[in-house]
Computed example of a mutant assay.
Amino acid sequence: MQNMVKYIQEHFGEGLTLATLAGEFKMSESYISSLIKKRTGKGFGEHLMEVRIQKAQEYLRTTNDSIEAIAERVGYPDYFYFTKVYKKATGISPAAYRRQL
């Protein structure tokens, strides 16, 4: 399970899916999903989104990269969708977060 969490941390920006994870670890999607839920308290999608948002916040704090570039780096090729997900998860937009720093 620890290897799976590490894999998610390392590949979150590469279009990672539950199917990809299942193939990598040679387990069924439903079994992996239940393991992640047991370990994190969240489903795969919610856990992946949380990892992506945390990384986006790190990049917003530590780089001068555009928000569009950060969105793509963390696995959201659609800037507007990234902004929507980010705001729903944190309560503020990525631009507002950066301005607060």
Score class of each variant (00 low, 15 high):
I32T: 08
Q2E: 15
V5M: 14
L16I: 08
I70H: 02
L60V: 09
I8H: 01
E50A: 15
E14S: 01
Q100K: 15
I70M: 04
N64H: 14
G15M: 00
T20D: 08
G91N: 06
A71L: 07
K55F: 03
L101W: 07
E50C: 07
F80D: 15
K6V: 08
I32R: 02
E29H: 04
V85S: 12
T63C: 02
S93L: 09
K42T: 01
T83M: 12
G75C: 03
K37Q: 10
G13T: 03
G41N: 05
E24V: 07
P94G: 06
Q54K: 14
T63S: 09
I32W: 08
L21N: 00
N3P: 12
K37D: 10
G41T: 02
D78R: 13
D78Y: 11
G15C: 02
D78T: 13
A19F: 10
M4R: 09
Y31T: 14
K88M: 12
F25C: 03
Q2K: 08
E72K: 10
L18C: 04
M49C: 10
M49E: 14
S93C: 06
D65E: 15
M49A: 15
L48K: 02
A69P: 05
K42C: 10
T63D: 02
Y86K: 02
S66I: 03
T20K: 05
T90P: 07
T40W: 00
V74A: 01
F82P: 07
G15L: 01
E29F: 03
A89D: 05
I92C: 10
S33Y: 14
Y76P: 04
Y59N: 01
I8T: 03
A56R: 00
I36N: 03
S66R: 13
L35D: 07
D78S: 15
M27A: 12
G91P: 08
R99N: 10
F80L: 15
K88G: 06
S93T: 14
K42Y: 08
A22V: 02
F12S: 00
Q54D: 15
L18H: 04
K84T: 14
R61M: 14
K42D: 13
K26P: 00
H47E: 14
A56C: 05
R98V: 02
K55I: 09
R39A: 14
M1L: 06
K37Y: 07
N64F: 11
E68V: 13
H11R: 09
Q2I: 08
R61D: 12
V85W: 13
L18A: 03
L48F: 04
Y76S: 02
L101R: 11
E58Y: 12
V5W: 05
K38M: 11
G45D: 15
A96M: 09
T83A: 15
